[in-house]
């Protein structure tokens, strides 16, 4: 019996738009994944603490407030200091093209923008976890 993929979905900062992240959570659940949702208004520290304790395969951060270029560096720093740099990090939401490029350079595995169909999100995460292999 293979273990379901574990995903933590987080909303960071003052962003109060959580309809999208809830739809994603539901889609991933229906694809057989274990989804941990943190709720709104979390700090990067809270998100990383939760992701490490939960030992998730994928940390998904949803941002619709435009602060991605300050949030993600903090998240990667905290993952490193916690010895969890093998975690797959995915960004979701609305962000400009140049940020997408820079986020990927920083280590974000995939940026899934607001018009991504749910099935593509499922396939992307499944693929990323398969590529990573056993841990």
């Amino acid at each position: 019996m293979s273990q379901p993929i574990r995903v933590l979905l987080a909303k960071v900062g003052l962003d109060g738009h959580d309809r999208g992240v809830k739809i994603v959570a539901r889609a991933l659940r229906d694809a057989g994944m274990d989804v941990i949702y943190t709720g709104l208004h979390r700090s990067p520290e809270e998100v990383v603490t939760a992701a490490v304790q939960e030992d998730v395969d994928v940390l998904g951060v949803s941002l619709l407030s435009g602060v991605q270029m300050t949030v993600f560096p903090k998240i990667f720093d905290l993952l490193r200091t916690n010895g969890a740099d093998d975690m797959i990090v995915v960004a979701g939401g609305v962000m400009p093209d140049e940020d997408v490029v820079n986020l990927k350079k920083m280590g974000v595995s995939e940026v899934l923008l607001q018009d991504t169909p749910p099935q593509l999100i499922i396939d992307t995460l499944t693929c990323l976890v398969e590529e990573r292999g056993a841990r």
Binding site: R29, A31, G32, M33, V35, I36, Y37, T38, E46, A50
Partner: peptide
């Protein structure tokens, strides 16, 4: 589906 939504942490955010 065998999947789940684990939401207990939301109520425990004061501890996070």
């Amino acid at each position: 589906s065998g999947g789940s939504i684990l939401g207990d942490r939301i109520r425990m955010s004061d501890l996070s």
